[in-house]
């Protein structure tokens, strides 16, 4: 599904990713862990197509298509979703309105007809239950005045409505208390259907107690230096990253 080969990317002239390889198959959950500054968020943003990240070498193939040539909204149309580490507050833009524009943008990209207002609102109501999102938040401006937990729930809620093929969660656990973490993870788990894939970027093993990965990768110095089964996360929690990074050097 997702195939990243020898990816090099720079931010403001500084090379962050240095030959990253990653293979994600349908239905798989991959966790990306690693020390601060190793390039985890850069990877997430490059996949989603954010400006300011310059890819200097390598390729990202998604379901057979070269992803790097596509605009962010086209990537969304192909089925990519990025849950932001810091969801953006957009005063004056209604949450549901934004989501309707997004869903219909994606449907149009795929040559499907737009959803009418009634069908759309039914879909929205159904999905709010998934992450226990208060309906009162729906008609508020996007993320404005939301608590940290509400913002992250809103991300997962949007993901549930947009039903991506591949979701990249960029430190979705940061800033969450244990209850919110459980709700968010529960939402993600309900969206696991054997087809949808996830790349979960996280600092801590804790999230992986709830979202159990198929593969755990350690990203260090812009490369994946170690991959292993879910138990690797526990080992990293106990021993830190130094031993892996040392092994790879």
């Amino acid at each position: 599904m997702l195939s990243i080969n020898n990816l090099h990317a720079s931010v403001a002239g500084k090379e962050i990713l240095r030959g990253l390889n990653l293979e994600v198959k349908p239905g798989e959950v991959h966790a990306i862990m690693g020390p601060n500054g190793s390039g985890k968020s850069t990877l997430a943003n490059v996949i989603a197509g954010r400006d300011g990240y310059e890819v200097t070498a390598g390729e990202v193939i998604f379901n057979g298509k070269p992803l790097l040539e596509l605009a962010p909204e086209e990537r969304a149309g192909e089925g990519i979703f990025l849950a932001f580490q810091y969801p953006v507050e957009i005063p004056g833009v209604n949450n549901v309105y934004m989501l309707k524009a997004a869903l219909n943008g994606i449907r149009k990209y795929r040559g499907e007809s737009e959803l009418d207002a009634v069908k759309f609102l039914n879909l929205v109501k159904q999905k709010t239950r998934l992450v226990e999102l208060k309906e009162s938040l729906l008609n508020r401006p996007v993320n404005e005045g939301f608590s940290g937990g509400e913002k992250k729930r809103n991300e997962i809620f949007q993901m549930a409505v947009l039903e991506p093929k591949l979701a990249v969660l960029d430190e979705t656990d940061s800033g969450l208390d244990i209850d919110a973490l459980r709700i968010v993870a529960n939402g993600v788990n309900q969206l696991r259907d054997g087809e949808r894939s996830f790349v979960v970027v996280t600092h801590y093993q804790r999230l992986l107690d709830y979202i159990v990965p198929d593969v755990v990768h350690v990203l260090a110095g812009g490369r994946i230096v170690k991959s292993g089964p879910k138990e690797l996360a526990l080992e990293l929690e106990q021993r830190g990253y130094d031993w892996v990074v040392g092994q790879a050097a």
Binding site: A48, G49, R50, D51, A71, P72, E73, R75, A76, G77, F81, L82, F84, P87, V88, I90, P91, G92, V93, Y97, M98, L99, A101, A102, L103, G105, I106, K108, Y109, P141, V142, Q158, L162
Partner: peptide, 24 residues
Amino acid sequence: ETALFYLRSRGVPLATARALLLHA
């Protein structure tokens, strides 16, 4: 720009994303 990217990453086409922000 951050808000524009956020909207586009959700699948909102660029022109619509700009219109939403102008509307706001």
